[in-house]
Design a protein around this nucleic acid. Structure first.
Lengths: 153, 153
DNA sequence: CTTGACCTTAGATTAAACTCTAAGGTTTAT
DNA sequence: ATAAACCTTAGAGTTTAATCTAAGGTCAAG
């Protein structure tokens, strides 16, 4: 059982942020002490790490709470509904991975093009890298769109 | 050459957002028409797509402009500086990819655990998936930390 | 037995990233 | 030639996600 300050410092956030998440339905402590202190379990901590990870990869708190609501409502949902919702989110995550990978490729090719020496970087342009990335992107999209429809948003 | 509204609707954003990006040094049109209209080139559009992609994968506008400043200043930087900065960002991108992949694994295992039928989802818990994900995560970190130092932040 | 580091609440303030409003100039379509 | 649909600026308003403030209760160490 962690108290609010312990959990906060463990996860490198403020206690305020935990109270904020609680107020907005993302994470409530499993119990309270006699004196009313919030008491977080290991499971609460796992849930928090999930929230923080989701945030760093670009999900909004609303999207995250949508995801977590699957857990809260599980008794009231049919398994098929849950699966649908999860698969939907999974598609979003996978398209983010694709974008990030393209992003990484773009940076990698810039880094590769760069001599790394003491001379001016006149000929190391991120835009040059971007342009080649866009060409790659278009090529990949053509392949991707052959196989399956991508109905995000 | 695109005018502001054309580029905006092409990229599914508001013209306001383009003016905002200009004011904050992220993207200025390459030229103006006689009457003062912003005129964006294909390269400007590529830069915009880069910005938007970076945003969807969780970079802040500040981080993005730091990235793009490499391009603007390239004549004043040594190639080694550019390479260092790019490699630094690349590390951030790669750790985001790792986090997203873990995220995707977690969702995938939830989806797999789910019978997908009309029964209650009582036993399909995202937390169950998260817990196994955390175990995986710890195992992976141990492996990852053997090979190389990870100095993010 | 009190000082300092915790905890509580509710509500105000901040920062980032838009988004809109006002007041007006320009261009294209009929 | 005039209305609709653009464009301009400057600045105000909104949303999201915290972060801080005020006013006070609790606890462990000296």
């Amino acid at each position: 059982m962690y108290r609010i300050g312990e959990l906060a410092s463990q996860c490198d956030i403020k206690a305020d942020t935990l109270r904020f998440y609680e107020k907005h339905g993302l994470l409530a402590p499993s119990s309270r002490s006699e004196s009313g202190y919030r008491l977080y379990t290991k499971e609460d901590a796992a849930r928090l790490r999930f929230i923080l990870r989701a945030k760093t990869v670009g999900f909004t708190l609303n999207e995250i709470s949508e995801l977590l609501s699957i857990e809260l409502d599980k008794a009231n949902w049919a398994c098929a509904d849950v699966k649908g919702m999860v698969d939907n989110k999974l598609e979003q995550v996978e398209s983010k991975i694709i974008e990030l990978t393209q992003f990484a490729n773009s940076l990698q090719s810039l880094s590769n093009a760069c001599c790394g020496g003491p001379d001016s970087a006149e000929h190391c342009s991120i835009l040059e890298a971007l342009e080649s990335e866009d060409k790659q992107l278009n090529a990949k999209n053509e392949i991707a769109h052959k196989g399956h429809h991508h109905a995000s948003k």
